[in-house]
Structure formats: C-alpha cells, structure tokens
Amino acid sequence: MANAKQISVFVDNKPNQLTGVMKVIKENKLNIRALSLADTSDFGILRIIVNDTDKASDVLKKAGYAVTVTEVLAISIPDAPGQLSRVLDILGSENVNLEYLYAFTGASDKAVSFVIRVDDNSTAETAFTNGGIIILTEKDITEM
C-alpha cells in the first residue's frame, strides 16, 4: 500500500493545548511534514504527518493524549490553475466521498501536495493512478 499514515490528536479548546503537543514533538526530535487543525466549539482535532509515525504515536500516547492513526492518501499536483478541480472531479466520478483535505509544501515549488481523507482509499487510489495523479508514498514524504 502506498498510503501515508496520519496521526490525529484530540486537543481541548483552551489556551496552551497545541503547545503541549508540539513540546512532545520537539522533545522527541520529530519533524512535521503536513499539518491541519479542525476545530469545534468544544475541542480540536490536530492532524499531522510526521517523519516517524510509530514513534510519534507512541510518545504522544505516553504523554496522555488521545491519538489515532489513519491511512490517508497524499498526492502531488502541479501548482497551476484547475489542478485541484481535476482531483475532485476524479473522486466525484468514482462516487468517493471526501471527508477533508489539506495542502502542504512538497520538495518542489512547482508542485503542491495534498493530504486527502476519503472513506474508500483503494478506489480513490486506483482512480488517481488512472487519472495520472502522482501519489506520494510514505517514503516520499519522509524524504521530503
């Protein structure tokens, strides 16, 4: 499987909550490749992709955080108008429901990378491959 692993962390909607998570990341010399924060009035869900998923998940759990690891798709598309629309069309044509997505910077300034969370990874993956979208492997992300 080429899927990337994303770590989600439950954070309270209070001051200094994100600081606590980042402190654990920093103390364990982990590097964040991609990040997004979803928020509600009660809590937030921090989603990150790091260079060492197992270690990050382990140390965050030990620090008392609620953590879950999810397989997501990471793709790279040219930094040009209409490219994200193309990606969404591919998902739509296969009837794959998009939960959320977020962008992150890749190795090249001519391309943009996205983390894509869908309900059906394998259908989406096949559709992307057939549609000529570059899927990033965990190794690709780690080596960025």
């Binding site: 439950f10 509600t40 809590f43 939960e99």
Partner: peptide, 13 residues
C-alpha cells in the same frame, strides 16, 4: 472522551 473511540473525523466526535 474515550480514547478508544477517538476518530480523526470531526463529525464522528
């Protein structure tokens, strides 16, 4: 929250 029921999806929570 119950860590075993934690989901990355806001709507689940």
């Amino acid at each position: 929250m119950n860590p075993e029921q934690f989901s990355d999806k806001v709507k689940d929570m």
